[in-house]
Amino acid sequence: MRGDRLFITVMLGPALIILALFYLWPMVENLRVSFTDLTLLRLRVGGQWIGLANYEEFITSPETGRLMMNTFIWLTAISVAVRLLLGLAIALIVNTPLVRHLRLATLARIAILVPWATPPVVAIIIWRWLLEAPNGALNSVLLALGLIDTPIAFLADLRTVWPSVIAIVVWNTVPLIALSLLASLQAVPADLYEAAELDGATRSAKFWHITLPFLKPTIVVLGLTSVFWTFNNFVYVWLATGAGPGTFTNVLATEIYIRSFVDFRLGYGAAIGIVMALIMAVFGYFYFRMIGRRQIEEVL
């Protein structure tokens, strides 16, 4: 229908034009730069075409293994897993009849909002102070409780630096998960539980067979969206540890920053960016294969 076609164009056009300009064009430009030796000092004149040299250097670099490990395992996998588990725990606790009965749920939901309303830059500053040694609040508490004898430099000690960074990320991002899961929990039909109780189901059985399956779609969506956000995130690691001690917490996004804006090698930084986008695209492909396909088919 001609009318529909016009309608589709008008409705879809603005979004696509904005995305084309602010995403597609810079992405294409970035792809081009990744094949050059462009530096920040020569941004005006432009770089020389060097083919795949940047990619080759990145792939063969001895650093790359650890960068991948840090980005995949520590920054992304563990932090997303902790976030989901903690978010689930918060949602379950807030949703218990006891908490509802005592009318604490609203208070809890307001409290959950606090970290979310805190911009990451602020969150990191606060946590750096809390984790500081020897006077930071956490050290003071642990010392007072007798759990440790000497203060721990949480963001400097190889044993604690990753858990600390993850703690910051989780604190700042768990509210989204907790509130979403809380909303889903409230949508679980009460008669399902009643029926199960009549059958004599234990509480853990009810959790595993009713609650969890009901939450699963939300968990999967939240988990995967969180993966995208976290994988590409540069701010947490950069401002919390500066990728240190040494290069211990360096991740792909901070490596891009160091290469592009410390070493001025824009071409090399661009190549890492392309590799990251490809990794996420592959990931995204499986994402849609696994859960998105059903959703897309139903939705579209």
Partner: peptide, 30 residues
């Protein structure tokens, strides 16, 4: 329903998967 819908929808979502930090320079120039 229209031709290329899946592709366009997929491309829109692809925006979520790109590290913003590499977009800074090209966007600045633009």
């Amino acid at each position: 329903r229209f031709r290329g819908k899946g592709l366009i929808f997929g491309s829109v979502l692809f925006g979520q998967m790109f590290p913003w930090i590499v977009l800074v320079n090209p966007l600045f120039i633009l």
